[in-house]
Amino acid sequence: MTSATSDDPSSVSGPGATAPAAGGADVAVRRRRRSLGRALAPVAAMAPFSIYSFLGLGVPILAVIYYAFQSEQGKPTLSNLALVTHGSYLLGFENSIVLALITSIVPGILGLILAYAIATSRSTLLKRLVATASGVLANFGGINLTFMFIATLGSTGILTAWLSAIHLNPWNFGFNLYSFYGVVLVYLYFQVPLMVLVITPALGGLRPSWREAAENMGASSWRYWRYVGIPVLMPSVLGGMLLLFGSGFAAYATAETLTAGTVTLAPIQIGSLLAGNQLAGQENVGYAVGLGMFVVLALTMILYGLVRRRASKWLR
């Protein structure tokens, strides 16, 4: 190539001579630019998400934490925290935790049973139907759910009417839909499907060959579950229940609309404070309740992360 151009005198001083040098510099520049681009690309690519998450999640959380330790006069104080660890605010936390415990353990078990019934069924139609329905119902809550349950088990509800026709009107036996246990009953409606959603992949991860291997080695169905099935599922079930705990603990809309804010739960107290129902000098107490909820949920999720790690190792 070079010899060919040097044979032709007209091109020696022309592009033939300068091209290699210029090309080299060009390549070097481009390479440098590319390596700079390569170094910056991840930052640029992750920037929108990171910034958004920080502004949308980080800043509000920091604000809650910050104002939990601020007095109304803008001075650092622990009085907000002292206030929420006593009296009615403490009761709110206690009730919320009890509610979350009940609505994680009971739907956890029910959801597992339901998911297993569906996972072992052969009907793909049923599986699809339940998957779709669970997806819808798990995110269901608040006002629609409240109305449905009022229409069902309210004092003039349909089920109430059916049951009173056989003299079993639950309201005559001390049942009150607009109470703590009413809230429990209603929460099942989204907690059970949530459990089904969470646990179904884990059930799918139970390989048939484990069961067959166990059977092959002389294990009965019960012993397969005892030694393999349940231990393998345990982390996923616990994980699912922790998720339900979080969801039950944090839920606001359903309890608020069902009871018009009359049950003492931590989220309802926040809502009431935010709506302006606060005593003078206690304007920042809501942030302290928020911080408390945040701490409970953070602990829950740390536990969740731990069990999930084990589950993902086992059920790959």
Binding site: R207, S209, W210, E212, A213, A214, N216, M217, Y227, V228, P231, V232, K313, W314, L315
Partner: peptide
């Protein structure tokens, strides 16, 4: 005694 195609070891043991 059976050996399966997919590794069928019990993951919890």
């Amino acid at each position: 005694g059976m050996v399966f195609q997919s590794y069928s070891l019990f993951p919890n043991m």
